[in-house]
Simulated assay, not measured.
Amino acid sequence: MKKIKAALLSYGMSGKVFQAPFLELHPGFELLGSWERSKKLIQADYPHLKSYESIDEILANDEIDLVVVNTPIDTHFEYAKRVLEAGKHAIVEKAFTTTVVEAQELAALAKAKGLKLAVFQNRRWDSDLKTVRQVLSEGTLGEIVEAEFHFDRYNPLLSEKQHKETVNSGSGILKDLGPHLIDQALYLFGFPKSVFADIRTTRNNSLVDDWVDILLFYPDFRVRLKASFFVREPNPAYVIHGKKGSFLKPRGDVQEDDLKLMKKPNLESWGTESLEKQGFLHTESDGKITNGKIPTLQGNYYDFFDGVYNSIINNSLEPVTADDGARVMQIIEAAIESNKEKRVVDL
């Protein structure tokens, strides 16, 4: 198997938890190291890897084929552009960029240079969403009437990460948790006709938005997306109502928690959530009522990296494309405009 040699632009939570373990697991990648500005931590976990002193050192290294841009959101455009201009493939963390224009420029640059550019929307490979997608694909709910997705937490304290709490073009819950919810909605239902959004600041001393409610208008149904830091008793993460029935699914994917505990991913049992987190399906087909729990599919972020590998080696489509990232940014910009003008914004 041909090896794709990769480097990270940061070894914070994203690099340590979500990126390095899967690049190390996949036989088609060879992770060479990470740019580390102050704390030199990567060799404590991977003694054979290198801590690079600068992005220039990475870009000048002809060995490196792929660079993961997992720095703060407001740096994504600058760094991803430099990576592509250096002739290297890129994975860019969410939110892809801070504006639609930036996203479109990166997509055009990658296409012009014949490079692969993928957006790290790992939540498509959560056990939760995979199960929701299967239920929708089976058509057991009938014609969809409404759906509501939540990404809620109870965390009234401000983050220790300053870039998340200072006012900049990439801060706030809309560009932190919002891209997960928006990407999942577009992945399942396609692009909506219009958007209405309510964006608030609820934590004491917060300078950035930390509560969001987005309503996506489709021709025959509506999708509501909500995120908050003041949900002590969680709502179901996914609520979908159709003309034949309903499906409710709590957030149950175990991958992030396991990765934070430094558990190593695998290809067998990884991403298997507990039985009590199963979704509840209540529907009717041919006069037969289904009313109970249904098994949850196994999640695995490995599949994202496998998709990136195949896109580079076999010139297939990236698992999450730059155009996908640009569409998410269109919803975010429409949400900001809607909140500011208190109106529905057509897309």
Rank of each mutant, 00 (worst) to 15 (best):
K3Q: 13
L9G: 05
L9F: 08
S10L: 08
M13Q: 14
Q19I: 07
F22T: 01
E24P: 00
E24M: 13
L25M: 12
H26F: 04
H26W: 01
G28I: 03
G28M: 03
R37P: 00
R37H: 04
D45K: 00
K50M: 01
E53A: 11
V69Q: 02
K88E: 02
K88A: 02
I91R: 09
V100G: 10
V101N: 09
E105S: 07
E105R: 12
L106Y: 03
K113R: 14
L115P: 07
V119G: 06
E143K: 15
L157A: 15
E160V: 12
E165K: 14
S171C: 10
G172P: 02
L181R: 01
I182Y: 10
A185E: 05
A185H: 06
F189K: 10
F189M: 08
F189I: 06
K193R: 14
S194N: 12
A197N: 15
R203G: 08
D209T: 15
D209V: 04
D210A: 08
F217R: 13
Y218N: 06
Y218R: 04
D220T: 14
K226A: 06
K226N: 05
F229L: 01
F230L: 08
R232F: 00
R232T: 00
A237K: 03
Y238T: 01
H241K: 13
K243H: 05
S246E: 14
L248Q: 12
K249Y: 00
D253P: 11
M262F: 11
K263D: 06
S269G: 09
L275A: 13
G287R: 03
K288W: 05
G292D: 06
K293H: 10
P295C: 03
P295D: 04
Y302K: 08
F304E: 09
S316R: 14
S316A: 09
T321L: 07
R327Y: 12
R327L: 13
N339C: 09
K340D: 13
